[in-house]
């Protein structure tokens, strides 16, 4: 004899990560830290962009950085020279950061008090990958995806999930536009098709002035966030 029980669960398979992401968000908000998650394919220019953004934000926001890499601390060393506190996460075999890794940094380090300055912005550099980082929210306030012009303007169509989930997309290495067939208009259109609310920027770290619109957008995002604090929407939650 046997009995059958059909248990209707609708349990979120990544619930552990999503709960920890929410927990990280509570840490950030309690400490007045605005957290920004930078994602891209390997080599699109995340570390280089951060090395230019940090000095820009230094005076007012005292940025801190969490550097995610599979192996080594090369990027962390590159950013440490800016004077910003940099926390390295070596993910080992994992091709993305997850909320647990961020929680460990938040619990194990006094990131809230560096050189007598409280950071009010935290840059998180994810592992170079356009697939898995989209699946693991970290508790960040904004998600940025970089797409360098050498990668091709069709990439939003091939990696729709990460572009749909982005708050802003940055087309990087625009100094190289003359050497490649990258149509900025097409690329922007694809991104807007995937997410009409996404902001789009084109810049080059070789042309310092080109970073300004993106830096301004970040500053405005911090201001907006301070007005709407406490609201937490998971990247996947609007489906339900």
């Amino acid at each position: 004899m046997h009995e059958i029980a059909d248990e209707h669960l609708l349990a979120n398979i990544l619930a552990n990560n999503d709960e920890l992401a929410k927990h990280n968000r509570e840490h950030f908000d309690a400490e007045n830290i605005f957290a920004v998650n930078f994602m891209s394919a390997p080599g699109a220019g995340k570390t280089t962009l951060l090395s230019h953004l940090i000095p820009h934000f230094q005076k007012v926001y005292h940025p801190a950085v969490i550097e995610g890499d599979m192996v080594g601390n090369l990027d962390a060393e590159r950013l440490a020279v800016t004077g910003a506190p940099v926390f390295q996460i070596s993910t080992g075999r994992s091709c993305h950061l997850d909320a647990q890794m961020i929680a460990r940094v938040l619990h194990g380090n006094d990131i809230h008090n560096q050189n007598n300055h409280k950071p009010s912005i935290l840059f998180i550099e994810n592992v170079g990958n356009l697939v898995c980082p989209a699946e693991f929210p970290l508790g960040e306030h904004r998600r940025i995806v970089l797409l360098s012009v050498t990668e091709g303007d069709d990439k939003p169509l091939k990696y729709p999930v990460i572009f749909h989930n982005a708050d802003a997309v940055v087309f990087s290495k625009c100094d190289l536009l003359n050497h490649v067939d990258f149509d900025l208009e097409n690329a922007s259109q694809y991104v807007k098709n995937l997410n009409a609310n996404c902001s789009v920027f084109a810049l080059s770290t070789k042309q310092e002035g080109s970073l300004q619109p993106f830096a301004t957008w970040l500053e405005q995002s911090i201001e907006k966030h301070q007005l709407s604090k406490g609201e937490y929407t998971n990247v996947h939650s609007h489906t339900r």
Binding site: E7, H8, L9, A11, L14, N197
Partner: peptide, 22 residues
């Protein structure tokens, strides 16, 4: 473009059927 997705972001266990074996 997409304003929002109303489905397509699911990743969940819908149900588990358990059998009690005597």
């Amino acid at each position: 473009g997409i304003g929002k997705l109303i489905s397509g972001q699911e990743l969940e266990i819908a149900s588990i059927i358990m059998e009690t074996v005597q």
